[in-house]
């Protein structure tokens, strides 16, 4: 399973690699990183539908995570990638606008990785079942 992580914090790469090192070693997941919305769109264009799951920050310089979410949901429709928003903004407004734009889930920073792993399992399994 390929996961694209979009965040302007460079250390996210190291963190995800460390946190998922067992899963990476076993070949269950594979990560790609983009440090801005623009970079993420470029990656998605280049690697057509490779990433089945996108984890995106909201507050980034340039294109915001919400704009990215909107574009992804417009552009890539068959099958739509699962998008989970990860943000330090824990307020209801951010949550609502993300959900209204079609986000599949919403988690807040600091990231609870055991919770994230649970969600990933459910999302991916659910998608596997529905796509069968």
């Amino acid at each position: 399973m390929k996961i694209l992580v979009v965040d302007d914090e460079k250390d996210m790469e190291l963190l995800f690699e460390q946190r998922f090192r067992k899963e990476i070693k076993e070949g269950i997941v594979e990560f790609a990183f983009a440090f801005s919305g623009e970079e993420a769109l470029y990656y998605l264009d280049q690697h057509d539908q490779e990433a089945v799951l996108i984890l995106s920050d909201i507050n980034m310089p340039g294109m915001s995570g919400l704009e990215l979410l909107k574009l992804i949901k417009q552009k890539f429709q068959s099958p739509p990638p699962v998008v989970i928003m990860i943000t330090a903004y824990a307020d209801a407004e951010s949550y609502n606008s993300a959900m209204n734009l079609g986000a599949d889930d919403f988690i807040t920073k600091p990231i609870d990785f055991s919770l994230l792993k649970e969600k990933l399992k459910i999302k991916v399994n659910g998608q596997n079942i529905s796509s069968r």
Partner: peptide, 21 residues
């Protein structure tokens, strides 16, 4: 307040997670 939350949560995310790792 929103700014503080955002600014603090980002480094905290790393502090918490890297220490757990």
């Amino acid at each position: 307040t929103a700014g503080i939350a955002h600014e603090i949560q980002n480094p905290l995310n790393f502090v918490n997670n890297f220490s757990e790792v």
